[in-house]
Design a protein around this nucleic acid. Structure first.
Length: 283
DNA sequence: AAAGTTACCTGTTAGC
DNA sequence: TGCTAACAGGTAACTT
């Protein structure tokens, strides 16, 4: 669900409420999300100080002073809401609990962080911080698209020889981290590349040219607080607004916005997911 | 090995 | 209004 920009927006929203703070109480209201929670999760969190909040791909990583890291994935419908007074001053009022509030953290500063996930495709696990890269959920993930190791040479090399459509290849988290259905549609529209084109059929130069487009789309979306369709909210409950900047996603039947293009946006299904693209200017 | 399909779960919406 | 079906931003497990 939430793709990289939404997860980064959530991480930034959680940081002032959680970083440097002790978790005074962890309420775990059910045994599992997509998978069972780790053994004794509440006890392993309670009384621990949050040293740092990081993000890897679509995962939020909460480093604790116990040497463990809490790994959080929002799945399709996961939200994290901050309530109360993070400045720790006078009133500590929190909204009434809602359906699907599965995990609730109370912080020493009075902030409350609530994980709500109707579809329960989300996940939480805990692992030793120093070997986190070997965790089964993280070990096969490709480079961060906004990091230095993700460059034109790398992407061209990874796409070489691939028979799958470029749309599918960019969704493959082993090739590049953090892209989901929405942003892949936007990237290919901005790049003028057909989602149906075989990944290995792109010239190296064209493959490499995707790198700055990917970076720009993601950076624009992060600046806008992510995209709110059905579920994504920022941690203060506000909507992101990048959805107003979509040029392809969700615009079936509407005109293509590429300057000089007279085509319209169509929709096809690729590996079970909707793809929106301009049949005229995306070749 | 790689590509494609299915399943997980609930909520919303479109269509009748 | 009420019912049903289709669909939703992810990804692991399964089949081909």
């Amino acid at each position: 669900m939430p793709e990289l920009p939404e997860v980064e927006t959530v991480r930034r929203g959680l940081t002032p409420a959680m970083e440097g703070q002790i978790i005074t109480k962890a309420a775990v209201n059910r045994p599992d999300l997509r998978w069972p929670f780790p053994e004794r999760m509440a006890e392993r969190l309670t009384g621990k100080r949050v040293e740092r909040l990081r993000r890897r791909s679509k995962y939020i990583l909460v480093d604790l002073d116990s040497g463990e890291t809490l790994i959080i994935h929002l799945g399709m419908s996961g939200r994290m809401q901050v309530s109360g007074d993070p400045l720790g001053q006078f009133h500590h009022e929190h909204p009434a609990p809602e359906k699907h509030d599965h995990v609730v953290f109370d912080m020493e500063n009075g902030a409350r962080v609530t994980f709500n996930d109707a579809r329960r495709f989300g996940a939480m696990d805990m692992a030793a911080t120093d070997t986190l890269d070997e965790h089964w959920l993280l070990k096969d993930i490709g480079p961060e698209p906004l990091g230095n190791t993700f460059n034109g040479d790398y992407l061209a090399e990874r796409l070489k020889g691939r028979m799958s459509p470029i749309k599918t290849a960019l969704l493959d988290q082993r090739i590049v981290a953090g892209l989901g259905n929405i942003y892949v549609c936007e990237v290919l529209n901005r790049a003028g590349i057909s989602p149906k084109r075989k990944a290995g059929q792109l010239s190296s130069a064209r493959a490499a040219s995707l790198v700055p487009v990917i970076r720009n789309v993601l950076e624009d979306a992060i600046s806008a607080g992510g995209s709110s369709l059905k579920d994504h909210r920022q941690t203060d409950g506000e909507l992101g607004y990048f959805q107003h900047n979509f040029k392809a996603y969700g615009r079936e039947g509407e005109p293509c916005l590429t300057p000089g293009c007279t085509g319209e946006i169509g929709r096809i299904v690729q590996s079970g997911r909707s793809t929106f693209y301009c049949t005229q200017c995306q070749r």
